[in-house]
Every structure is written in structure tokens, then in C-alpha cells.
Amino acid sequence: MELNVLWFILIAVLYIGYFVLEGFDFGVGILLPFLGKTDLKRRVMINTIGPHWDGNEVWLLTAGGATFAAFPQWYATLFSGFYLPLFLMLMALIVRGVAFEFRGKDDNPRWRALWDGCIFFGSLVPALLWGVAFTNFIKGVPIDANMMYTGGFWNLLNPFALLGGVVSVLAFTLHGAIFLTLKTDEEISTPARAIANRLWLPLMLALLAYTVVLYLTTDVINRLGWNPGVVPIFTVIAFLVTGWFLRQKRDGWSFVVMAASIALAVITIFRILFPTVLVSSTDPAFSLTIYNSSSSDYTLSVMSTIALIFVPIVLAYQGWTYWVFRKRVKSNPQDLHY
């Protein structure tokens, strides 16, 4: 396989890992004011993601680093072009991460309310902006012949992109609600399941609207053809099956299939993009692809060796910690770290 293709796949894998994992911890953060009506409930919710959120976030950092290493032009154009949205996302991630650690360290209710707010907005804003960002990747943004972004801030917050943001917020919130059904006692898991059931239909409708707009306003039909292939079809099926398992109260299966839905959705997006990484709406010839934005073959081969050794190791030990903390988090204040 060509190394450029391998790295495109690896970066897709990193984003899959990121959205599947951080997806549910964003969801838990977004649900905090809705399901955490008492301080103890909020603490239980935060503790369900306590051992994991930081490790989950490293998937994003690694995706960023890998993009820099393998496709420096993509890294440069994307992050300088999406400057202000990225700045907002960074701010959100900063206050969110600190909030997890700080909120429980003082029992003043105002102190806790402040950090609860940070967790909520710190989860909501990135959840929204990721949908916005990926929609813009597919839709295209103004990029000139020198790979420079020439649009402004509001170009990025167009209606279609915002619809993408609604989809990602709904998807991550649903994912988080299902995660909570698995990780908490009845007093949280029952309302969490009810919310999950209520979120599923709006998510389906938003996805349907998104798909319609996608086909009507972009050249996705040329890229995928009339038969989109198995991945997009399986994505739709997975989302439908998630709803079915939810109604059957099969929480474990709901979670597995929801995680699969997110993974398949990310694969679909990358499948649509391939071999482009950033579409130029100015002129398709100016688009960034895995070929014109990549590092040298030498760098790619060095990085491939390292990635193929260490990615499995990381997956193994991170998976193992999920296994260790597989039990439900009980509402026993003594046992809660956060």
C-alpha cells in the first residue's frame, strides 16, 4: 500500500478512536445539567468518565501530531484557516479538562456550579464544532493556489455546517446517555435510558436532513457514485439498530452498536474525502490531497514503522484500563475521586 494512503487511514483511525471515546465523555458533559440534578449525581456522572477522559483526549492530540508529521500542508492550511473556531474549541477543552480536576476540590456550591458550567459548555462547544468542521471538509472552503485559506470566520459557520454540528451534538449526547446507562445505578441509568430513547429519533431526522443536503449541495454523488458502497449503508443500519436495542433495553448492545455507528460515520466521511483532505471551493484543482500535502516518503516510512509498533500497544493498555474500570459507579461519596 502506498504510504500516503496508509497515513490517511491511520489518521482516520485516530479520529475514529477520538470520536468513539471522547464522544461519550462529551455526551456525559452535555447531559450533566439534565441528568445530574443533585451534586452527588453530578459527581457520579463525572466519575464514570473520570479515569478515561484525559486518555480519550490524547487521541485528538495524536491526530494533530500525526497530521503535522504525515501531511504538514494539511496541518498548516487547516489550523491557520480554521483559526477562530479552533481557538474556541481549544478554550472549551481547556476549561473542561481543568473543571474535572478542580470542581470537587472545594465544596462551595458556587465554585462547583462554575466548573459544572465549564464542563457543560466545554463539552457542548467542541461537540458542535466537530460537526461543523467535518462538514466544511466535505463541502469545501475557499483555498487559493498556494494552499492558503482565503475565507473568513463566518464562512465556516454556514447553515449546512451548523446542521452538521447539530448532528454531532445529538450523536455524542446519545452516545453519552447510553454510556451512562451502562455505568450508573438505576437512579441515573433509568432517566439516561429515557433521554437516549428521546434523542434517537431527532438524531435520525437530523441525519436524514444532512444526507439530503449533502447530496443536493455537494458533488458527493460524483465521488461515491449512485451506489455508495457498504460502509455508508452499514452506517445507516447501525444507527437504526441502535434505536432498536435501546427500545429493548439492551444497554450493552446499544453501546456497542452506537460506537460502531460513530466509527462507520467517520469512515464514511473519510471515504467521501479520499484522496482529498481539504476541498477547495475556489477551484477543485487547489484542493489539498494526500499527495500534494504529504511529507516525504522517508518521513512517512519512519513514522509508519513507529505507528505500526505503538498503536497496537496503546490500544491494548487503554483497552485494559476500560476493563479494570468496567463496573458501575456507585453513589457512594467515599468511593468517588472527583
Partner: peptide, 10 residues
């Protein structure tokens, strides 16, 4: 420069 940064994360 990207290589050591990515390796650092990984």
C-alpha cells in the same frame, strides 16, 4: 518537526 511531535503523543 511533525515526526517527534506525533511520536511524543503516541
Amino acid at each position: 518537526f511533525g515526526a517527534p511531535l506525533a511520536i511524543e503523543a503516541l
